[in-house]
Design a protein around this nucleic acid. Structure first.
Lengths: 158, 158
DNA sequence: AAAATCGCGAAAGATTCTTGCGCGAAAGCC
DNA sequence: GGCTTTCGCGCAAGAATCTTTCGCGATTTT
């Protein structure tokens, strides 16, 4: 659906600005990228409809909301046939502790980004839900100590 | 800095809605959470100033922008003294390919979320930058196949 | 060279944002 | 108990923004 380009320098500026502050007003955005408001709004709409902008999200402060544990889990399955992969992927969607999940290739089959209110909750989840789920072979966890870098998914030239 | 609470049911609704759509207008938001626009805007401002809402971000479609490779790297260092950890953390901030980075405890010391335009670029980065950086012991990479779940950092009760 | 296409920017009406103020409910204090 | 204070809601109005319409100029196409 989304063809890769037809993006000029102004489009890239728009993407960079909105990745930095997704709630910027259109007039502010238009001024930063150097065009007037109407064409700027048209470009944003076009980027949204093309699926290049997938959406907007407020970034929340997890510890301030009582979510003190952020961890990553690397999951290895016994069988990696397509049906089994889809089954496990579907299962991750039912676990509220899992916030993002990726199917990966390498030593593991899935990588889960998990958030929980406390260590006990997380450990219970790992032992009673994750490790005991069907077809799960190995579970390696990495508890996060702190976030070191946090930028958008896409890099822009300076 | 941000005290954990003083959040009532309406505040939680606001956070959930803005995590789902960070660009929603205030009138739409106020209608969804069941209060009028002015107090709703005051609550959003309070959540922003308290640091509970850390910011807003447009979510971009990496492949549509020519970023075909998304991977995670688990890094183990030779020495994990505070100074070395800080040094490596600082180094990650200078690598545009690294989009997010976490200091973790477990089998590895850092987890890097990387995005590159193609596999060659990524492999060159891993070999010539990452693995050859000072103090780096092990590098394990997991290439992502597809995103399986993508929600905000904080879970809300249904 | 003429015609068509494309995107910018001015202008105007609709919508939204933002502030100030009065009201009522809940909490604190004699 | 009754009074006072505090707090947050919602109405209303002015300011800012959004969104559409339209004309213009530049580039491309025929």
């Amino acid at each position: 659906m989304p063809l890769k380009a037809d993006l000029d320098a102004i489009d890239w500026k728009i993407l960079r600005e909105l990745q930095g502050d997704g709630r910027m007003t259109n007039v502010e955005l238009s001024s930063r990228v150097g065009i007037s408001a109407p064409p700027c709004l048209r470009r944003v709409r076009r980027l949204e409809e093309a699926g290049i902008i997938r959406g907007y999200r407020a970034l929340l402060n997890a510890p301030a909301l009582g979510m003190d544990v952020v961890a990553f889990c690397l999951i290895g399955l016994h069988h990696q046939a397509d049906a089994e992969l889809k089954t496990f992927a579907e299962r991750t969607r039912g676990w509220p502790i899992v916030r993002d999940a990726w199917m990966v290739s390498g030593e593991s089959d899935f990588l889960l980004h998990c958030v929980a209110s406390d260590l006990g909750t997380f450990q219970t989840f790992v032992i009673e839900e994750l490790a005991s789920a069907p077809n799960v072979d190995t579970v390696r966890t990495a508890l996060t100590i702190r976030r070191v870098k946090d930028e958008g998914l896409v890099a822009f030239p300076a």
